[in-house]
């Protein structure tokens, strides 16, 4: 588990079967959009794709105020006001794409129950990413997720997945065909999505 601990990125603060929200351990150190994350115990882990990364005030009622002075760099502001880092938090919203079933089988559909609150969230390794993306059955779920831009999520995920495959281009073409089948009635959407995938 050392690997997983090393890659720990946060803790679940909101959970549903279709997705979960995690607060990152460190401000601004969220996994990138489209990254594959895992949470929960290893035997029944839930896998999600990062669909939204957000940084905001810990207290929803208090909006941060501009504090920079003329000539400051971004870092100067934080150095002069160390409290800011304590008042802000970075959160990720993940769309659930798969979970571990009995006997370690990877099931590419929603888990029977969501991860628990405070479950630790870790960034998946390249191996896990490759294993999951060997079959792209779950893409439909990502494309229809209730997030701001599901297409960007899918594109970012596929780009990252391509990088861990032996033949990235062939992977992207296969993924593109999967998308084409899913979006056959929405050609303009398919077009723009494919452009984002294009190597």
């Amino acid at each position: 588990m050392t690997m997983a601990e090393d890659a720990r990125v946060g803790e679940v603060v909101e959970a549903a079967t279709s997705g979960f929200v995690a607060q990152c351990s460190r401000l601004y150190e969220a996994p990138p959009l489209g990254a594959l994350v895992r949470c929960g115990p290893s035997a029944s882990a839930v896998y999600g794709v990062v669909a939204e990364v957000e940084t905001r005030s810990l207290d929803p009622g208090r909006r941060p105020m501009a504090v920079g002075r003329e000539g400051d760099t971004d870092d100067d502001v934080y150095r002069r006001n160390p409290q800011i880092s304590r008042l802000l938090s970075t959160e990720i919203t993940a769309v659930t794409v798969a979970h571990d079933g009995d006997g370690g089988r990877l099931l590419r559909y929603l888990p029977p129950s969501p991860p628990r609150i405070h479950a630790f969230v870790s960034l998946c390794s390249g191996g896990e990413l490759r294993r999951l993306s060997d079959s792209l059955d779950f893409l439909r779920g990502v494309l229809s997720a209730h997030v701001t831009s599901p297409d960007d999520v899918a594109a970012a995920f596929l780009r990252q997945a391509a990088a861990v495959h032996e033949d990235p281009e062939a992977f992207l073409v296969a993924a593109g065909r999967e998308l084409a089948a899913l979006l056959s009635s929405e050609i303009p959407r398919l077009n723009s999505l494919l452009k984002r995938l294009s190597p």
């Binding site: 281009e169 992207l172 073409v173 593109g176 065909r177 998308l179 084409a180 050609i187 303009p188 398919l190 077009n191 494919l194 452009k195 995938l197 294009s198 190597p199």
Partner: peptide, 14 residues
Amino acid sequence: TPPDVSNPFIARVV
């Protein structure tokens, strides 16, 4: 509405 086949990747996919 044919896809944008000027992009070789899209052409290959479609």
